[in-house]
């Protein structure tokens, strides 16, 4: 019996390495961190009761899995196993990531047929951009993450990044690709990165809570409005590294037009970054 794959939830979350480090070093009760992790708790509880069969993590690499000699705009992993990268101080002590090559190849074929020019990664080491969001979702994975993962990579580091509109369109095509997968699986999708921050230059330390509040609201209610922002607007309003928020639009595009917000939380600073989390239930009743 052929089934139908379904996105059951979408999770937007920052992937700042220091969030992982705070967990790895048992500092989650530290006064500088407690509010962040308290803010994660409701999302984690809901997620623990809604475990998908497979997760798609939209993220970017940070000089760990990829070099700058080859910079793909969009990539997808098709491996059955992704090792956790050594970012320069030993790999994080978290489980390696198990892949789902069948789903990866289905998504690849669907997306290439929809004119998305993906780069295929048959080998890939995953860095904090992917593993920190898994930790935000599942703080104590034990020997294994809750389910297999399909990594989707986005160039957010080197101009020209894909436009916000292109990311949103990719998400919409990804949603169609998931729904056309003839297997009866549930899918969680994670859009990672952000929120506003800038690491270098005279404007280093830039954070924009007003913009972030707007983004947290509209990613729920009006993602198409966010998709209309230009690179320059994003960098000006969210900082040169905050532009990575475009990855949230891929997650959001794969979901229904109307979704139910389960929980969101905003915290700063996580390292030099404003950290946000937003969890959406995709199985909300559609308006009549």
């Amino acid at each position: 019996m052929a089934g139908v794959a379904e996105v059951i939830w979408g999770l937007a979350t920052s992937h700042v390495p220091s969030i992982g480090a705070a967990m790895d070093r048992g500092k989650t009760e530290d006064p500088n961190w407690k509010d962040l992790f308290d803010g994660y708790a409701p999302a984690r509880q809901w997620l623990a009761q809604h475990e998908p069969d497979v997760a798609i993590v939209v993220y970017n690499d940070h000089a760990n899995g990829l070099d700058l000699d080859i910079v793909p705009t969009f990539g997808i992993g098709t491996a059955d196993h992704y090792r956790v990268a050594d970012e320069g101080y030993g790999p994080r002590q978290v489980p390696d990531v198990i892949g789902d090559p069948d789903l990866s190849l289905h998504l690849l074929e669907s997306l290439v047929d929809e004119n998305f020019d993906l780069t295929v990664f048959q080998e890939l080491e995953v860095d904090h951009g992917l593993t920190v969001p898994l930790s935000v979702w599942t703080p104590d994975p034990g020997d294994a993450w809750p389910c297999p993962v399909v990594p989707i990579l986005v160039n957010v580091i080197q101009y020209p990044q894909p436009t916000a509109a292109r990311c949103y369109a990719l998400g919409q095509a990804l949603g169609r690709a998931i729904r056309s997968y003839g297997e009866d699986v549930t899918v969680g999708i994670l859009g990672t990165g952000g929120m506003s921050h800038q690491l270098a230059g005279a404007r280093a330390g830039f954070i924009n809570p007003e913009f972030d509040a707007m983004w947290l609201e509209k990613i729920h209610t009006d993602p198409a409005a966010l998709a209309a922002l230009s690179r320059e607007e994003l960098i000006r309003e969210a900082g040169s590294e905050g532009i990575e928020l475009i990855m949230w639009l891929i997650m959001r595009g794969a979901m229904a037009d109307e979704v139910t917000k389960v929980h969101s939380h905003y915290f700063l600073p996580a390292s030099n970054t404003a950290a946000g989390i937003a969890l959406f239930d995709n199985r909300a009743p559609q308006p009549a």
Binding site: A79, D80, Q122
Partner: peptide, 20 residues
């Protein structure tokens, strides 16, 4: 893979994984 051309091996994703 998804194609069917007699006498013609198609180097698709699963083949490439097998042969990596």
């Amino acid at each position: 893979g998804r194609l069917n051309v007699p006498g013609t091996p198609i180097f698709d994703g699963q083949t490439s994984r097998r042969g990596l």
